[in-house]
Amino acid sequence: MRRDALIVFILWVLLTVVGEAIVMAIDIYPPVAAVEAEHIDQAARTLFMLATPVFTFVVVVMLYSIWRFRARDESEEGPAVYIHQPFAVGWLVVTSALAALLFYNPGYVGWKFLQRDPTGDLVVQVVAAQWHWHVTYPQYDLTVTSKPIGFERMEENAELALPAGKRVKFEITSVDVIHSFWIPALRMKVDAVPGLVTTMYATVTEPGSYEEDAAFRVQCAELCGTGHPRMNMRVTVMEPEEFEKWVEEQKKMMEMGGGMEEEGDH
C-alpha cells in the first residue's frame, strides 16, 4: 500500500515535470497582434500549467492501477475499503483551492485587464449584414465592405487596416441576424447583435497581415446562414504612416466606386 502510493507519487512528480516542460516549450498559438492577445495567451498557458498536474495525477493513478491491480483469478475480491476520510477531505480542499485560484487568476485578473480602459484612439464601427462586414472609420470618413468570396480569392477581398501601437475601439452591430466579430490574431470576438451595439477594445502591437497567417482576418464566428464561412475579410496591422496612406488609397478607390459590385456565390 505505502509502496504503491510512493511509486505513484514519484511517477506523478516526474510526469508533471515533463508535462510542465512541454507546456512551456511548445508554442501552439497563432501570431499575436495586440497586448490583450498576449495576455490571453498567457492566461491559456497558466491554465495549461494548472491543468497538467491534475491530468498527470489521474492518468498515473489509472495506469498504475491497470498495471498493478489486475485480478489473477475469478474469485479474487478487493479490500473492503469504503472511504479514506483524510484523503477525501484533502481532495475536496485541493480541488476547491484550485478552482478558486484559477477563478482569481487568470480569470478575474485577466478579465479586469481586458476591461481596464474603455477608450480608443481609433474608432472602428462594424456593421454586420448577411454576409458582409461594413467597416467604417468615422474619424477618416471611410467605409470598406467585405465580399463573401471565400478563402480562394481572399486577396481580392476587402482589408481592415489597423495602425500599430494604437488603441482601437470597435463598435459592433448587426442589421439582420446575430453575427460574431472575431479577429483570431487579437484573440477576441464579440457578437454583432441586431438592436444592440457591442464593443471590443484592443491595443494593437506589431504589423502583420493575412498573407503571413490566417489569424489576421475578420471571421464571422456565429452561424448566420449560408454565407457564414465566407463572411470574412483580411486584417492588416501596419505602421501609422502606412495606415494614413492606406486610408487615402481606399478613399480614392471609393470615389472610383470600386470593390462593391461583386457578390460572392455560395
Partner: peptide
C-alpha cells in the same frame, strides 16, 4: 468542477487496490 472532482475521487479510489 469541484463536485465533478468528487466523481473522479470516487472512480480513482475504487480502482486503487482493486482486483481489476
Amino acid at each position: 468542477s469541484v463536485p465533478t472532482g468528487l466523481i473522479f475521487l470516487s472512480a480513482l479510489g475504487t480502482i486503487w487496490q482493486g482486483k481489476l
